[in-house]
């Protein structure tokens, strides 16, 4: 219908988005707090910042300079203020504000992550659909079985196998990334393999549930063509739960990105954070974690909104 009357007004309310965003802020706060205390728990961070043979008074000087000798609550307060205002101490490795350094890497990571997600959702969806509806026992078990097998192999290993087969042996794709489309294929596939099985399984279960539902019988009674029945009634009703899993898997995507980006040398934020940790670039680590956490929250927000669009019961 073209116009929607008051009781169902609007697709997704601002109130709903606001609520989700508030939950997301708490998650971001939790992530950075965890990093702060983790870094503190490993001892005086100043020691990490100086050469191993630095004299004790040099350490003391740096400790004082960076405020690590102040009481923990005070440090935490300063830390939170810097996160909120976006003013971080200078990056140790690169010098200057670490924020732009991290932000610069986000587009590349985003492109890789979304491509991986897309491939994963499509392949996972197809495998889930086939295994739920196939009449033959073969089709219903084998693809899902293979996907589950792949799930139990670590991401970096899949990445290396893909490089050896497709880049070294066959030479179809470049070995190390340059950031262009051709070099994105292998890392994106590697990422996708991490969540194809989960999506396939959840989608399969959701489909089997919906196929049993009474409203499918009603739809069949209407004598609808098969493709309408399948898409509008069966698949569309199975998306809700599946989307939730996509949101959770976004975490896998980000975590996987750190590994995948280093394996393929993809110039994204995952590789940057590994380097930052290796360089003991404390301010840059914080900024990277912050960026990844915000990214996670945003992906989940988008997933929640999409889920509310396809699932009207969630809106109320």
């Amino acid at each position: 219908m073209d116009r929607c009357p008051p009781p169902c007004a609007g697709a997704v309310s601002w109130r709903y988005i606001g609520g989700r965003l508030a939950t997301g802020l708490v998650a971001v706060w939790g992530a950075v707090t965890l990093v702060f205390f983790a870094l503190n728990a490993t001892g005086n961070p100043a020691i990490l910042l100086v050469p191993p043979d630095a004299p004790p008074d040099e350490i003391l000087r740096l400790t004082h300079l960076m405020g690590f000798d102040r009481p923990l609550p005070v440090q935490y307060w300063h830390f939170l203020t810097s996160v909120v205002t976006g003013t971080f101490p200078d990056s140790i490795r690169y010098g200057g504000d670490p924020l732009p350094i991290a932000l610069e890497k986000i587009p590349a990571s985003l492109a890789l992550g979304l491509t991986g997600l897309l491939i994963g959702v499509l392949l996972g969806g197809v495998i889930g659909y086939v295994s739920a509806t196939a009449r033959s026992g073969w089709l219903s078990r084998v693809p899902l079985g293979i996907a589950t097998g792949i799930e139990s192999v670590p991401t970096f290993f899949i990445g290396i196998v893909l490089i050896i087969v497709f880049a070294v042996r066959l030479g179809w794709f470049p070995v190390t990334s340059t950031g262009d489309a051709a070099s994105m294929v292998l890392p994106a596939l590697t990422l996708a393999f991490a969540f194809i099985p989960a999506i396939a399984r959840v989608f399969r279960t959701a489909l089997l549930d919906v196929l049993q539902a009474e409203h499918i019988r009603t739809a069949r009674a209407k004598g609808l063509p098969r493709h309408v029945l399948v898409w509008r009634h069966v698949v569309a009703n199975s998306l809700g739960t599946t989307l939730n899993v996509v949101g959770i898997q976004a975490g896998v995507l980000l975590g996987g990105a750190v590994v995948t980006e280093s394996v393929f040398g993809w110039p994204g934020i995952g590789q940057l954070s590994i380097n930052a940790v290796q360089n003991r670039d404390y301010p840059l680590v914080i900024v990277c974690v912050l960026a990844i956490a915000v990214g996670f929250v945003l992906i989940n927000l988008v997933v929640d909104i999409v889920a509310a669009v396809v699932e009207p019961r969630l809106r109320s």
Binding site: C8, E214, H215, R217, H233, A236
Partner: peptide
């Protein structure tokens, strides 16, 4: 489809939860 109409026991479950009544009737 042309000659039988069916009504089931559980009315709310018999309708597609994510489609407005108008769209379901139109089908």
């Amino acid at each position: 489809a042309a000659s039988v109409g069916v009504v089931f026991q559980n009315p709310t479950a018999s309708l597609n939860p994510r489609m407005r009544i108008a769209a379901q009737l139109r089908e």
